[in-house]
């Protein structure tokens, strides 16, 4: 690909988007820290003002992306400006680090767009993963997504489109505090929007089904929020931009007897074909309640 400077001359400008993790001091990995410390300039989009101040201690030139936000400003425009702010410095030949809360590639358009754009322009760009809110959620709520499965949706998208819910698995709805927003300009929606969300969930869950509002802790001195309420009370429950709704299973796993029979037939066929083999692997059939624990 032709580069802006012509030829294939490597450019000194480069971009790394790194995750700080969710909690100050607890989750920052050595590679992410090295990117921050060795950058010429660091752009920051973090979730807590104290975390932003902490980051400023790590580098002399930390530029917050917060000023790009404004009430009523289209979100797409805000994010485009953030990407351009970072890319301008990359184009100027600088080593740029974007430091983002959590994981820079999870529910974060700006790091993905910035990396893609930098690569299109011939610059080296890299994403360094971090501990996400999802990771903290599993740890704090004691959920193993491998046990009965776990589906994740962005709450508004979940409302705008017909999605197939499996009530035998966990359901996690992100950004539930802004569920139903179609303006892409607001930072919260109200109880009336959440009533519609509950109406949708009521197609698959009873009204008294316990659901948990989760917010990861961002400072070591604070605790995560883990408030469990009946589904029907969700509209009147206080929610924030960073609130996540966790809906536990309401039904047991349903065995697919037809599929199990077909697998068993396959195994019988393999056993017959391996009659010359002394030791044939024995099939393991899932238990009724779910898969065997590791």
């Amino acid at each position: 690909m032709e580069t802006p400077a012509g030829e294939n001359t490597p450019k000194p400008g480069q971009l790394a988007c790194v995750g700080l993790g969710m909690m100050l001091g607890a989750h920052l990995g050595p590679r992410a820290r090295a990117h921050i410390e060795q950058a010429d300039v660091v752009f920051a989009a973090v979730s807590d003002p104290v975390v932003e101040l902490w980051l400023q201690q790590m580098h002399r030139d930390v530029r917050s992306l917060q000023p790009h936000y404004a009430e009523g400003k289209p979100r797409h425009q805000t994010y485009r400006e953030m990407v351009e702010a970072m890319l301008d410095e990359v184009r100027a030949g600088r080593t740029v680090c974007g430091a983002f809360y959590g994981h820079p590639g999870v529910f974060a358009k700006v790091p993905h767009d910035a990396i893609a754009q930098a690569r299109r322009e011939g610059f080296h760009a890299h994403m360094e993963p971090g501990v996400s809110a999802e990771d903290c959620l599993y740890a704090d709520l004691g959920i193993d997504p491998g046990r009965v499965g776990c589906a994740h949706f962005e709450a508004s998208q979940f409302m705008f489109y017909r999605r197939r819910i499996d009530p035998s698995a966990y359901l996690v709805l992100w950004q539930v505090g802004i569920a139903g927003d179609r303006t892409y300009r607001r930072f919260a929606t109200g109880p009336e929007y959440r009533r519609l969300l509950v109406e949708r969930l009521r197609e698959d869950y009873p009204p008294d089904h316990p659901v948990t509002v989760y917010e990861a802790a961002t400072l070591p001195i604070t605790q995560p929020r883990m408030d469990t309420v009946p589904l029907c009370e969700l509209p009147d429950t206080a929610l924030h931009m960073h609130s996540t709704l966790v809906v536990p299973p309401s039904a047991p796993l349903q065995r697919d007897e037809a599929m199990l029979a077909r697998i068993e037939a396959l195994e019988r066929g393999q056993t017959a074909a391996n009659t010359d083999t002394a030791e044939t692997p024995q099939p393991v059939i899932p238990a009724k309640a779910g898969l065997h624990e590791r």
């Binding site: 979730s47 917060q66 936000y69 529910f107 974060a108 358009k109 992100w174 931009m241």
Partner: peptide, 8 residues
Amino acid sequence: MRRFVAVP
């Protein structure tokens, strides 16, 4: 502090 909001 504003946080990223994924656009649906």
